[in-house]
Amino acid sequence: MRRVKILVPLKRVADPDNANKIKISPNKIDTAGLEFKPNPFDEYAVETALRLTENGTNTKQRLGEVVVVTFGPKETEPTLRAALATGADRAIRVDATDDQLDGDLVARALKAIVEKEKPDLVLLGKQEVEGDANQVGQLLAEYLGWPQATFAGSIKSEGDKALTVGREVDGGSMILKVTLPAVVTVDLRIVSPHAVSSMHKPDHTYQEGVRFAALMAIMAAKKKPLVEMKLAELASDTALKIQYVGFEPPPGRKAGVKVKTVAELVQKLRAEAKVIQ
């Protein structure tokens, strides 16, 4: 049985549940004071990779390899260690700061990593919740000349050569079959208990959401390999294609009034707001 190798790019982000506490000035967005977390979608991608390489009989050994990679400064290493603690095998940190990167450069550098690591599958989050761009997976797929299945809400492995992916699209769910190697980006529902089915069914059912690392695994993760790479080793051209020239807060919205009864609500919607007849 061939082992599947999965590469998961993941990014550290400022606590998304407190995104309304960022400080915005015309030339920068300051996240100081916010806690850092892994991008939720990337945690889901790691969980998906772990489910896809699950060993039905021996939970201590994966049927395949999960490699995580981040583009970030030294301080982002705990994010990689956390992924190693939940079960990923190896980690790569490409030394870079956010202002040296745009999605296109991340994708081009990832291409170089893919060419070296030769994974069967690159699993990414559909979107990184600071920039909210939703682009790196698609850019990478094109640069590699690989098929893509974006916004995956379900994945079923078809032997070790293909995946059936249910994509969450505006009109419903679009089912695709992709032949590996491929790029898949994951959506929120991918971590529901039955969303991922691998070749080797585990004897337990999955939890809702991502798994937590046991203390022992957190200790063991400190010994797993984590290598550092330089951005310039991976991309000859590090010029950015997108340049931010300014930032501003969103227009404010004031709380309105509380109505006491349903009748009052309807009266106000008709007479005051004039949005219903």
């Binding site: 995104a19 309304n20 960022i22 967005i29 294609k241 997108i242 020239v245 300014g246």
Partner: peptide, 13 residues
């Protein structure tokens, strides 16, 4: 960006 808590103005180079 940031779940609509900020807007960025960008240029494509």
């Amino acid at each position: 960006m940031y779940a609509g808590n900020a807007y960025g103005w960008c240029k494509v180079s």
